[in-house]
Simulated assay, not measured.
Amino acid sequence: MTAGIIFSASPLLFIREAGYPIDYIGLICTAAPIGVILSVFGRTVINSSCNKIILIYALPLMLFAFALLFFVSFNISIFNYVIAALCYGLGGGLFQGSLIQIAMNQKKDKQSTIGGLLRLFQNGGIIIGSACSLMLLEAKISPLENISTYQKLWGITFSVLSIMFVYSYVSLFRIKK
């Protein structure tokens, strides 16, 4: 869901609020995919268990990204957006890579089922996030009203990630007991 929101709302933010040309916006919005690419190198440096990667690195990086976007919504700059998008991409890449590794550590006969379900839920979340964010952004016409809508989107996403973080943290301790 978070990917759907950041990838659908960000271009609209820069088109409507900043008036940047579309090719410039395309370059700005590559920050998150660059973060995902950097996460591959980050995983080799971290060299930790999947649960620790998710709790210590991935979710906190994504939480930081949306907290930054939430607090600078009224005065978004390219620098702030690029930092937030890089952090989101890095955290998202670590998160997704860890989930895939957890799926591959399951029984051999369950790997394809778990991997398929994981991808199904990821794609469903992206669709739901994109649809919800575009619906909210199209509901208002005035650019000044849209800024508060962007802040609401970043806040909703921050809340979803916070719930995921708390749930993951509690689940990890239940597993250890």
Results as ranks from 00 to 15, higher is better:
2 T>N: 11
7 F>D: 12
10 S>I: 03
10 S>Q: 02
12 L>N: 15
13 L>Y: 12
17 E>K: 09
17 E>D: 13
17 E>R: 09
17 E>G: 13
19 G>L: 06
20 Y>Q: 15
21 P>E: 10
22 I>P: 00
23 D>G: 15
24 Y>P: 11
25 I>A: 08
25 I>V: 10
25 I>G: 08
26 G>C: 11
26 G>M: 06
27 L>I: 11
34 I>W: 10
34 I>T: 15
35 G>N: 04
36 V>C: 07
37 I>H: 04
38 L>G: 03
39 S>H: 02
39 S>Q: 01
42 G>L: 04
43 R>N: 14
44 T>N: 15
47 N>A: 14
48 S>N: 09
48 S>C: 08
48 S>L: 01
50 C>W: 00
53 I>E: 02
53 I>L: 04
54 I>Y: 02
56 I>N: 03
56 I>S: 00
58 A>C: 08
58 A>S: 09
60 P>Q: 15
62 M>C: 08
64 F>V: 14
65 A>I: 00
67 A>E: 06
69 L>Y: 09
71 F>H: 10
74 F>W: 14
78 I>P: 09
79 F>H: 14
80 N>T: 01
82 V>A: 11
83 I>D: 14
84 A>Q: 03
85 A>M: 01
85 A>N: 04
86 L>K: 03
86 L>C: 13
88 Y>I: 09
92 G>M: 01
92 G>H: 03
93 G>R: 13
96 Q>T: 03
97 G>Y: 06
98 S>Q: 15
102 I>Q: 00
104 M>N: 06
106 Q>E: 14
106 Q>T: 08
111 Q>Y: 00
121 F>V: 14
125 G>K: 06
126 I>S: 02
126 I>L: 03
128 I>V: 12
129 G>Y: 01
129 G>D: 05
130 S>V: 00
133 S>H: 06
137 L>Q: 11
138 E>D: 06
138 E>W: 01
139 A>V: 08
139 A>T: 13
140 K>T: 12
143 P>G: 05
143 P>A: 06
146 N>T: 14
146 N>H: 09
147 I>F: 01
150 Y>H: 13
151 Q>R: 05
156 I>E: 02
156 I>Y: 01
159 S>D: 09
159 S>V: 07
161 L>P: 10
162 S>F: 12
162 S>L: 11
163 I>N: 10
163 I>G: 04
166 V>Q: 11
168 S>P: 05
168 S>K: 01
168 S>L: 04
169 Y>C: 06
170 V>M: 11
171 S>T: 04
172 L>W: 09
172 L>E: 14
173 F>A: 04
175 I>M: 08
175 I>W: 02
176 K>H: 06
176 K>Q: 10
177 K>C: 07
177 K>L: 05
